Computed example of a mutant assay.
Amino acid sequence: MKTIEITYPFNMDNLLVKPTSLAIGFFDGLHLGHQAVIDQAIEKANKLDIVPAVMTFSPHPREVLGKTTFDGYLTPLKEKLSQLEALGIERVYVVTFNPTFANLEKESFITNVLVPLQVSAVTTGFNFTFGHKGLGKATDLAHLGKGSFDVKIVDPVIIRDQAVSSTRIRQSLTSGDIQLTTELLGRPYRIQGKVVHGDKRGRQIGFPTANVEPEQPYYLPAHGVYVVRVVNKNTTAYGVMNVGVRPTFDESAAKTKLEVHLLHQPSHLDLYGETLKLELLYYLRREVKFTSVEALVAQIKLDRDQAIQWIKDKSLFFDERQNSFV
């Protein structure tokens, strides 16, 4: 997949544009609704024998316009690009979202952005907006682009009687409804980061943890304890992850930390510096402050047992001899 970062006004000399079937949107989360848009763009590309492509934007408009507080991405750009490639996209235009681009009139978006990029077909979601103050609607693309490109507007994907949306996914993560999050995404929610050195308290109480520092500005789920699948370049394992501030040890801590205890971790395994992908599978409980370290240890043992039972109930293979999941 070819990724092309561009800033408006474009320098067309270096773009090497090709006729494309273009899905347009921010696509934060690349949830089932977004996937439906992208699938339609790929289908159109196959019919016309042109390049299946995506136009997305960076950074998030909320970061630039400052109308509301920005609290992180469901799929930061690097994660988004990886998933777009897996979906079958061959070219991605990453347009810098800045005040100049934000103030572009909707007509200019057609004539100065889409037409020069040789877009033959456009696919968008039903709620797509563009141009100054978002005054351009999906239906305006067909009217303003008539004679230049075909337009397909994709209906919402409905799950549990509501449209799939990035907002719903944020709400489900905040409430700890990981099952709904997975349904809306069509996959587990994933956070990627590097293992960094911590204070080794987990090791001191008999439950060593990998302290994971997100490598991108992810939207973090509710504070609490989760069953997770842990993937790195060498292995896939299961674990229990605490998301929070560890109130039993540090009431004043403000920064949210991600600490993962693997259900099976060979003594020789050294994860420091490794990049891990953490997939949220199940929400066990909220984060609480315990009256003693002994009470915390007892709860961690219970969390571990409940995680193992949950994974067994989901028919994932459990190796009794190695006390590990594969």
Rank of each mutant, 00 (worst) to 15 (best):
residue 2 K to R: 15
residue 3 T to Y: 00
residue 7 T to W: 02
residue 11 N to A: 10
residue 12 M to P: 00
residue 19 P to V: 06
residue 20 T to G: 02
residue 21 S to E: 09
residue 22 L to M: 06
residue 23 A to S: 09
residue 26 F to L: 11
residue 30 L to P: 03
residue 34 H to E: 05
residue 45 A to G: 06
residue 50 I to N: 04
residue 51 V to T: 12
residue 60 H to A: 06
residue 60 H to F: 04
residue 63 E to L: 15
residue 70 F to Q: 01
residue 70 F to I: 07
residue 71 D to Y: 08
residue 79 E to I: 06
residue 80 K to P: 07
residue 86 A to H: 09
residue 86 A to M: 12
residue 87 L to G: 01
residue 89 I to K: 04
residue 91 R to T: 09
residue 92 V to H: 09
residue 94 V to W: 00
residue 96 T to F: 10
residue 96 T to Y: 11
residue 97 F to G: 02
residue 97 F to I: 11
residue 98 N to V: 11
residue 110 I to G: 01
residue 111 T to M: 08
residue 113 V to L: 04
residue 116 P to C: 13
residue 119 V to Y: 00
residue 120 S to A: 15
residue 121 A to C: 13
residue 122 V to G: 01
residue 126 F to H: 00
residue 126 F to R: 00
residue 130 F to C: 01
residue 131 G to Y: 00
residue 135 L to H: 14
residue 145 G to I: 03
residue 145 G to W: 05
residue 146 K to V: 07
residue 154 V to H: 02
residue 156 P to Q: 04
residue 170 R to Y: 06
residue 171 Q to S: 14
residue 173 L to R: 02
residue 176 G to E: 10
residue 178 I to V: 13
residue 181 T to A: 14
residue 190 R to E: 15
residue 191 I to H: 02
residue 194 K to H: 09
residue 194 K to R: 13
residue 194 K to W: 05
residue 196 V to S: 06
residue 203 R to Q: 13
residue 204 Q to A: 12
residue 204 Q to I: 04
residue 205 I to A: 06
residue 207 F to C: 11
residue 208 P to V: 10
residue 208 P to R: 05
residue 208 P to C: 09
residue 209 T to K: 01
residue 212 V to F: 07
residue 219 Y to V: 11
residue 221 P to L: 02
residue 226 Y to S: 05
residue 230 V to K: 02
residue 232 N to L: 07
residue 233 K to A: 15
residue 235 T to R: 15
residue 237 A to K: 10
residue 241 M to I: 11
residue 242 N to G: 13
residue 244 G to K: 01
residue 252 S to Q: 12
residue 254 A to Q: 15
residue 254 A to T: 15
residue 256 T to F: 03
residue 257 K to W: 05
residue 263 L to T: 06
residue 266 P to Q: 10
residue 267 S to G: 03
residue 267 S to N: 08
residue 270 D to M: 06
residue 271 L to G: 03
residue 272 Y to V: 13
residue 275 T to E: 12
residue 278 L to T: 02
residue 278 L to A: 00
residue 283 Y to R: 05
residue 286 R to Q: 13
residue 291 T to W: 05
residue 292 S to F: 08
residue 297 V to Q: 08
residue 299 Q to P: 02
residue 304 R to W: 13
residue 305 D to N: 07
residue 312 K to I: 14
residue 315 S to K: 11
residue 323 N to T: 10
residue 324 S to G: 15
residue 326 V to G: 11
